[in-house]
């Protein structure tokens, strides 16, 4: 029973990160119909921002070697700030890699390549500035909180609970915003049809920016949380999450917000269930799900059926 509970917690906390990650993909996909391949890099950036804001120093490699902020913020403040930083970078990415193509009405597949380019630039810029070594956010960051909690007899790391709670709050806030506010409705209208939305007085360009901003914020926060619970394994560590995020995205349904959450939790749990002697295959779980889903039900669990436009 305790083992099962532990498994459940491990799976859910990883799944929550996947969900946050995939939500960013899904927001951008729903308004633009493209996948932002720079998303993994934004996630990485969020992790590094969090590390520096809590007062971490740059390692010996890279141009900024030894640099450290003169202040150190508590984690609960550093995390949202890192999210905002990541959002700002995501907006710059939108301006450079997406908007010129959209203005010209190019093939959406082109945006796939430009966003990949933006991601490659970001990742290598990080490597250039702070080096390729791994960083870890010290556990002491969560000052007053104990390292582990005991829930119904199972020992659970506080970080995991925190991760689950923060991700849950963000997901709830996002769905309230999308379904319950004017701007959220406007976003839905743009994802339905940007031109009609524009005719109805919605600033489509602005809504796309908002989608990118929120997507960047979610990725940044997810990055910071993973940095705290595992470590920042180097500038490339977001890429693996980025690819798995695709699995989550397809499983839940492209463009579906509840789908992204459900997909994230399913893949997180499925990965946690992989027995330890097969742990090498864990990374294939998300892709296996992705592949099967595309073959059986390409619109995903909660997506709408693909409309064939003639």
């Amino acid at each position: 029973m305790e083992g099962l509970l532990q498994l459940l917690f491990n799976g859910l906390s990883v799944g929550a990160v996947y969900a946050l990650f995939a939500l960013g993909y899904t927001l951008v996909f729903s308004v633009l119909g493209v996948i932002n391949f720079a998303h993994g890099a934004i996630f990485t950036l969020g992790a590094y921002f969090t590390y520096f804001l809590i007062g971490g120093a740059v390692g010996a490699n890279g141009l900024m070697a030894g640099l450290q902020l003169p202040f150190s913020l508590p984690f609960w403040l550093a995390l949202p700030l890192a999210g905002l930083g990541a959002a700002a970078v995501a907006l710059v990415g939108e301006r450079i890699a997406f908007r010129p193509l959209r203005d010209r009405g190019s093939d959406p597949l082109q945006a796939l390549i430009t966003s990949l380019g933006a991601g490659v630039i970001l990742v290598n810029l990080i490597q250039l500035l702070v080096g390729a070594e791994s960083y870890s956010i010290p556990v002491g960051t969560l000052e007053a909180l104990p390292v582990a909690l005991s829930i119904a007899g199972a020992k659970v790391r506080t970080v995991q609970v925190l991760l689950l709670v923060i991700a849950g709050l963000l997901l709830v806030a996002l769905s309230i915003w999308i379904d319950g506010s004017r701007s959220g409705k406007a976003l839905q209208a743009v994802s339905e049809d940007p031109v009609t939305a524009q005719l109805l007085g919605i600033n489509s360009g602005r809504m796309i920016q908002i989608a990118f901003g929120i997507s960047g914020f979610l990725a940044g926060v997810a990055g910071g949380l993973v940095g705290l619970s595992v470590s920042i394994a180097g500038p490339y560590f977001g890429i693996g999450y980025g690819l798995k995020g695709l699995g989550v995205l397809v499983l839940g349904g492209l463009g579906s917000v509840p789908g992204a959450v459900l997909g994230g939790l399913i893949i997180g749990l499925a990965e946690a269930c992989v027995p330890s002697h097969l742990s090498g295959y864990k990374d294939a779980v998300a892709f296996g799900f992705l592949f099967l889903m595309l073959l059986i039900r390409p619109q995903g669990l909660l997506g709408r059926p693909l409309a064939e436009k003639v």
Partner: peptide
């Protein structure tokens, strides 16, 4: 379109793992 691209990425990753 994008679905084919994603499916082939998944194939490559499964093969790699």
């Amino acid at each position: 379109g994008i679905y084919l691209a994603i499916a082939t990425i998944a194939l490559v990753e499964i093969l790699r793992v």
